[in-house]
Design a protein around this nucleic acid. Structure first.
Lengths: 210, 210
DNA sequence: CATTGTGAACTCATTCACAGCG
DNA sequence: CGCTGTGAATGAGTTCACAATG
């Protein structure tokens, strides 16, 4: 029976990880995979895998395992990564440029369709992906015209909140914030933060406490 | 009384966030901050702030709050970010280059002292930070010579595990893995993963379930 | 009969609520 | 009086353990 309880956020993250391992398993010629095998690859507990998958269906065959291809399709559907998503990147410094050129994004159907900056030396230039860098003042208009649903902030921390407001005004519904600033948005907008200095701090903490 | 229970990992992450807000508060001229103020800035519960700080000391003044400067020092010490850490970056593509040039790292005393790649067109070239890109075969020797304690993997996923082995062999004790591959290391080595496609997947999941 | 699916037990994290104290 | 520090209550996430089953 499909469990209709709300799926925990950690489960979503793991589904994303399972999905990538399933791709690799398929590439290696596997047709079926047990929760134990998948768990080993993802470095989690087998019961965790089964419970996570159980949140949105019953896909396994008892005594056998999961169909590698079929399970991928289920996860893709559940995560809504079975279609294109248009992405706009704000702040075309080194990190913004790196994302624009990052192959993983288009492979996973995240399409970087616009690049914005406020630096007049950059505006009008073309990225190596042949995208014109637009004035941030055109953000509102461009988001609507190109149907951008996800905004990515790759500005310095001091500019992050201002950019967040611009994105909100343009009715972007989700933001991926690479700046180390905490941005403040209304409930209606989703935010995920990627803060690598925080990750480094975890490492230094553990290094000096072990 | 200083609580000696092991500090949860989530608390470490938040300490890093508190620290950055304290820097901003200091910059804005605040001398004291209450748990409520700090909590508001970091978007957490005030009791959470107090409990997190309580794990490693008693720094507050009842009826008043926390000394903004003093608390920063305590957190820095606890996270071990009150000294330099030498970092080596492996994989000088767009993302690796972006990190090499990222100002936040040296500001936070993470020093990128070496850059490695296996591409002969890159080896011997200089980064914009004037660092020579070294052959990955020199990794072992260089890590020891330059006293590199943290390795950063910014290679494609397929190369990540191999690089992890090289880093392990060179006795690097902590790895920050930006590739979407899960790397396998012994207990003695610490790993943190930064997987932005997983973060995007969380956003698309939530977008289509709200 | 190997492996799934899942309640129940357990572990870990958050929040409450208030005593303690400057 | 106001805010910290913290035990107790609650809530969330993980793991166990085993019945269900292809």
């Amino acid at each position: 029976m499909t469990n209709s309880t709300r799926i925990p956020k950690v489960t979503i993250t793991r589904l994303s990880i399972y999905y990538r391992q399933l791709e690799l398993l398929e590439f290696d010629g596997y047709r079926m995979a047990s929760s134990e095998k998948l768990a080993w690859l993802c470095q989690v507990n087998p019961a965790q895998v089964r419970k996570d998958l159980g949140y949105f269906g019953e896909f396994g065959v008892r005594g056998v395992g999961y169909d590698v291809i079929e399970l991928q399709a289920h996860i893709k559907k559940n995560l809504a990564i079975n279609r294109d998503w248009n992405v706009g990147i704000v702040g075309i410094g080194n990190l913004g440029s790196a994302l624009l050129q990052h192959q993983n994004l288009p492979i996973r159907r995240f399409k970087c369709v616009a690049a914005f900056d406020n630096d007049h030396n950059k505006i009008g230039e073309f990225t190596s992906t042949n995208l014109m860098i637009r004035d941030i003042r055109e953000l509102n208009e461009t988001v609507k015209k190109l149907n951008i649903e996800i905004g990515v902030i790759t500005t310095p921390p001091s500019a992050a909140q201002g950019v967040a407001y611009l994105l909100l005004n343009a009715r972007v519904k989700a933001v991926l914030n690479f700046s180390s600033a905490r941005i403040r948005v209304p409930e209606s907008c989703l935010v995920e933060n990627i803060d690598f200095t925080a990750k480094l701090d975890i490492l230094t903490y553990k290094l000096s406490n072990s």
